[in-house]
């Protein structure tokens, strides 16, 4: 039934090498180029990222798990880690609240100061953490502009826990708000409008329509917030002073330990933070896929 009858066995003209190279090498050269590019990229990632990560793991096992464990489980280390976790908890809660309100205001509202809100919410990404520390020092430090007021009220911010909190809140400000704003923009207003036409109240619309749509993005932003809070160093060093047992965080602990060549504790804590960030990354990747799927669905 097929058209095989059309193909008998007529003479096939001899191959004209000049016109059509029967085995042309262009493809082979292209393949060689592909392999070379792949090798360059793998080498690059090894030099910049994978090598250093592996080196830390290797170094910790060279020092000895036992020694590292006892250094990391010693009270100063645990206190520092606890301090960092407290900062993570505070910044996650505050950003969940402020980030959501800010994102809705940025995307859904039109008001004077909206542009300013957007720009200021982005700014911490462009500013060095040391600079942030310095800025607060100049404002609420011992010789800061507001020092007399704080003294009168007997508030201590710099070199105390509130200083750590302020520094961490500053650096984590953009993550949740930007993520939510992006997703709110993407999903548009049609569902909210539909809910409004069906007689839903403002809160009902938020809880039953908007929130479920941005839940994944909120999770993503808060995970980024947590990672950033856990890893902040410059701002908490300047504002906290890294006083052991009072304002020392996990990162400043590592810094001090490495300075004093107490490598078991320093590298051990670095590995702990590295491991936590790998876990956070795994969660982030998971949410990224879910977000991609969710956005695909609403479009």
């Amino acid at each position: 039934m097929r058209a095989e009858r059309d193909v008998g066995a007529p003479a096939i003209a001899p191959v004209e090498a000049a016109k059509l190279d029967a085995r042309d090498t262009r493809g082979d050269r292209l393949a060689a180029g592909r392999v070379a590019l792949g090798a360059v990229v793998v080498l690059y990632l090894a030099v910049v990222l994978l090598g250093p990560m592996g080196a830390l793991v290797a170094e910790v096992s060279r020092i000895g798990i036992g020694e590292v464990l006892s250094a990391v489980l010693a009270p100063p280390a645990l206190e520092a880690l606890g301090m960092s976790i407290a900062l993570v908890a505070i910044s996650v809660v505050v950003n969940a609240f402020v980030g959501t309100i800010g994102a809705i205001a940025l995307v859904r509202h039109r008001f004077v100061g909206r542009g300013l809100l957007g720009a200021l919410a982005d700014l911490p990404l462009a500013v060095s953490p040391v600079m942030i520390g310095l800025a607060f020092l100049l404002l609420v430090g011992r010789e800061g502009v507001l020092a007399p007021v704080l003294e009168a009220l007997d508030w201590k911010i710099v070199y105390a826990f509130p200083g750590l909190v302020i520094g961490t809140l500053f650096v984590t400000l953009p993550y949740t708000m930007r993520e939510l704003a992006y997703v709110l923009e993407e999903i548009g207003t049609s569902e909210e409008e539909a809910a409004a036409t069906l007689g839903a109240s403002a809160w009902q619309t938020f809880w039953h329509v908007t929130f479920p749509n941005v839940r994944v993005a909120l999770g993503y932003g808060l995970l980024m917030t947590a990672a950033r809070a856990l890893g902040e160093f410059g701002a908490v060093l300047v504002l906290g002073g890294s006083i052991s047992g009072q304002t020392q965080t996990a990162t400043t602990f590592i810094h001090d330990a490495v300075e004093e060549r107490a490598l078991a504790g320093g590298y051990g804590m670095a590995l702990v933070l590295g491991a936590i960030s790998v876990v956070l990354l795994a969660l982030l990747e998971h949410l990224k896929h879910r977000r991609a799927r969710a956005l695909g669905r609403t479009k």
Binding site: L49, M53, L56, M224, A227, L230, G231, E232, F233, A250, T251, I254, H255, A270, L273, G274, S277, V278, L280, L281, L284
Partner: peptide
Amino acid sequence: LPLAVPTLV
């Protein structure tokens, strides 16, 4: 990963 790893680390 560099988004999650503390820069000090």
